[in-house]
């Protein structure tokens, strides 16, 4: 495989590490996100710390290796972050995936999400962008529930 493979060793390692795999008991927020293209489904649980940061993120993934890797990387990065930082990370990853010149510069200054630069080759496969973004979208909805900004999170579609 070339360096431009979607399935780089870092991505596979992230998926196999399965950080955060499994549901949390008594979560403060929970959301489900479906990918209508492939039928994949992401279940996210969130527990919040008393200081307003994320204490833990758990997930149950029915999805491809890219989706599993993304959820794993997100679960590893999330503890200690504020909800807004998840949104900012998702936006930075979107910019990376959509960038014409295939650069991961948008993730500069986000050390918690440095591992996501391994997803850079996915930029050329538009149909797979949602695989990476799905865990983030579900997490943002779970965070809305956890922080009381929204109360209807089930079965959202990306």
């Amino acid at each position: 495989m070339t360096e431009q493979s979607l399935y780089q060793e870092q991505v596979k390692a992230l998926a196999h590490a399965a950080h955060g795999a499994g549901r949390l008991s008594g979560p403060d927020g929970h959301a489900v996100q479906d990918n209508p293209l492939c039928g994949d489904r992401v279940d996210i649980d969130i527990k919040m710390a008393s200081d307003g940061t994320i204490a833990a993120l758990g997930h149950d993934i029915r999805g491809c290796l890219l989706c599993q890797a993304s959820a794993s990387g997100l679960a590893a990065a999330a503890p200690g972050l504020r909800p807004q930082q998840i949104t900012e990370a998702r936006q930075a990853i979107e910019r990376m995936l959509h960038a014409v010149d295939a650069t991961s510069d948008s993730l500069d200054g986000m050390p918690a999400f440095a591992a996501f630069t391994a997803f850079l080759p996915v930029h050329r496969s538009k149909s797979r962008h949602a695989c990476i973004l799905l865990p983030f979208l579900a997490t943002e909805k779970a965070l809305e529930m956890a922080t009381g900004t929204n109360s209807t999170k089930e079965d959202a579609t990306c």
């Binding site: 979607l6 999805g63 491809c64 290796l65």
Partner: peptide
């Protein structure tokens, strides 16, 4: 293995 990874 997930079908989409194989298809890709």
């Amino acid at each position: 293995l997930h079908p989409h990874d194989i298809c890709q």
